[in-house]
């Protein structure tokens, strides 16, 4: 609970990411005008030409931190915002960029750049590795409904109700057939945080865990079920590595004894 600001000044920052999560802000087409009326996008480079310097009431940060430059920059951002929200899985826990973390920086740099000499990257991490974070909007990309819930909660001065139980809950409430149980498709839904409305399994695709670990996830037990379903150790490791391999929970899943 905090005192709400009448029309909070909002800033949107980009780090190592695909920009898809900031684009999601603009994708709230039917409610975008109402959002712009309710908050002041003071800094949002993707969306507007005139951007105003801080301080800001609310900062959204998209992307992982994967260079020492970015470490400095995220600390500066933290100093300019009253509340900091990680926007999307990259900012929450490393996301897709963290895929590279199982290899050396030199190896992955050489794979992408012809002359990697000037690249000084560090393992990709969520922003909370370097600065305190007030809220997480998970997902690759973020869910616009969750974004709206967070903005409304901020306007009301209350804690947003974004539950992080399993995707299975949302999947079952829609009475989807379980992909794991009925089609033998390995699904990360049981240990992945909800909030997406079980979008992938509802469309016949297994959950790839883009929203990261759910509450009290038992990834080790799911890994055992994946093993029994015929996946190799390498395959299981890769499943858990894809989006949130840097989280302790998914690391445990990937380390099947």
């Amino acid at each position: 609970m905090s005192t709400p600001v009448a029309r909070p000044r909002v800033a949107v920052f980009k780090f190592s990411s695909c920009a898809g999560c900031q684009l999601q802000i603009l994708n709230i087409e039917d409610q975008l005008l109402a959002v712009v009326g309710a908050v002041d996008f003071a800094y949002f480079v993707m969306a507007k030409r005139e951007n105003v310097p801080g301080p800001y009431d609310l900062g959204f940060v998209e992307g992982a931190i994967t260079s020492t430059e970015e470490v400095k920059k995220i600390k500066q951002v933290r100093g300019q915002v009253r509340k900091l929200v990680a926007l999307g899985s990259c900012a929450c826990f490393g996301g897709l960029p963290s895929l590279k973390n199982s290899r050396t920086q030199r190896e992955v740099e050489a794979e992408v750049y012809e002359h990697p000499g000037a690249i000084c990257s560090i393992p990709a991490a969520g922003i909370d590795r370097y600065v305190p974070v007030d809220g997480l909007l998970r997902g690759c990309p973020i869910d616009t409904d969750e974004l709206l819930e967070l903005v409304k909660a901020e306007l009301l001065g209350i804690t947003p109700s974004l539950r992080t139980h399993s995707v299975c809950m949302e999947c079952k409430l829609q009475e989807n057939p379980c992909l794991f149980q009925t089609r033998g498709e390995v699904c990360l839904g049981p240990v992945t945080s909800a909030g997406c409305g079980a979008r992938c399994p509802s469309n016949g695709r297994a959950c790839h865990g883009c929203r990261g670990p759910s509450d009290d996830p038992n990834a080790r037990s799911l890994a055992q079920a994946m093993w029994e379903a015929g996946l190799t150790r390498e395959e299981i490791y890769r499943r858990f590595q894809l989006y949130a391999g840097d989280t302790q929970a998914f690391q445990e899943g990937g380390r099947l004894p």
Binding site: V151, K152, S166, C168, K172, P190, V191, P217, L222
Partner: peptide, 24 residues
Amino acid sequence: LSCGTCTVVCPTCYCFNVWDKVNL
């Protein structure tokens, strides 16, 4: 797995959550 599936499919489970969804 703490996923909650067993209770959702149970015909005698009756616990529910109530919350307010406020418009913009």
